[in-house]
């Protein structure tokens, strides 16, 4: 592929400036707490959306169980800070390590299957974890746990952390897709046998992608629950996390980097608006997602490209 270096450089400068502006907004707290709270949520949803997109849209591994890592990291954070009195950054690290370890062990089972069986198995794993945490006294069973931190981070700090995580995840995805590994991943999705025949180590590729997705999803989960302050088995291992990831990627456009960004902005604004109609939000989000799959499977990012 031939590409022109100058516009790429220009665009990179633009992105860095955008990042610095957003960062500055968080540090000064200039836009006000409400806007920062929106930003916090949008950045985290971009992160988990990009990761689900990496799995489903690029690598062809549609998972319905990424909430396993959100729950695991949320509980790790709660256990580390409340039970063992550690500062919350160490809780993040422990959540990351536990999620990586869990994903690594699980990958030996999951990489043996694909398609709908992969989707079902990931979901069953998350449900099994939720059931397990419901009956374990170590994590207070269904009563849940609180997350302690002194001083509790303000929204500005949370916003900056989410922004950095989001930027890291975007850079990771873009660089990954440009690398040899990324090309192998895309080749693998199009035709697994052909990729294998041309020397792609399919299992290794799939494992790396799965681990990266697990790691970033876990970090985003820690941040979500640091903001919430409490965690229950139903909220940590909620299938709702997957619903939002699916929605974000389907609406935005599966298999594009820009898709989940657009999808997250729409998701956060729409769910904020739908909060006025309790009980209806998932119904409307679900209906929108179905309509998009049926009538506009490329998502709005490519729709815009098609019009222009």
């Amino acid at each position: 592929m031939r590409h022109n270096p100058a516009p790429v450089k220009k665009r990179a400068v633009l992105y860095i400036v955008l990042f610095l502006v957003l960062l500055l907004a968080g540090i000064t707290g200039f836009p006000g707490n409400n806007i920062l709270r929106y930003g916090f949520r949008i950045f985290l949803y971009i992160t988990i959306g990009e990761m689900w997109n990496l799995l489903s849209g690029y690598a062809g591994m549609t998972s319905l169980g990424q909430q396993a890592f959100i729950g695991l990291s949320g509980y790790s954070l709660a256990l580390a800070t409340t039970k063992y009195g550690l500062p919350f950054p160490l809780g993040f690290v422990s959540g990351l390590i536990i999620s990586f370890a869990f994903a690594f062990v699980l990958s030996f089972l999951l990489l043996r299957i694909d398609g709908m069986y992969f989707a079902i198995t990931t979901w069953v794993v998350a449900e099994a974890l939720g059931t397990l945490f419901m009956s374990m006294t170590y994590v207070n069973r269904g009563a849940g746990m609180t997350i302690t931190a002194t001083p509790y981070p303000k929204i500005g700090v949370l916003y900056v952390m989410a922004l950095i995580l989001c930027a890291l995840s975007l850079v990771t995805v873009v660089e990954l897709l440009k690398s040899k590994l990324g090309l192998a991943v895309i080749a693998m999705k199009d035709d697994k046998q052909a990729a294998e025949a041309t020397g792609v180590n399919v299992k290794r590729c799939r494992r790396i992608v799965y681990l990266i997705a697990a790691g970033f999803t876990a970090l985003a989960g820690s941040l979500f629950f640091l903001n919430k302050g409490t965690i229950y088995p139903e909220s940590g291992f909620d299938i709702g996390w997957t619903i939002s990831m699916v929605f974000i990627v389907i609406i935005g456009g599966s298999g594009t980097v820009a898709g989940p960004i657009a999808g997250s902005v729409i998701y956060v604004l729409l769910s904020e608006f739908l909060a006025h109609y309790p009980g209806w939000s998932n119904i409307i989000l679900g209906a929108l997602a179905i309509l998009m799959i049926l009538f506009c499977p490329q998502g709005i990012v490519r729709l815009r490209r098609r019009i222009s």
Partner: peptide, 11 residues
């Protein structure tokens, strides 16, 4: 198809 049934389930 899997994702559509997922949406129906949620709805």
């Amino acid at each position: 198809a899997l994702l559509v049934t997922f949406g129906i389930s949620v709805i």
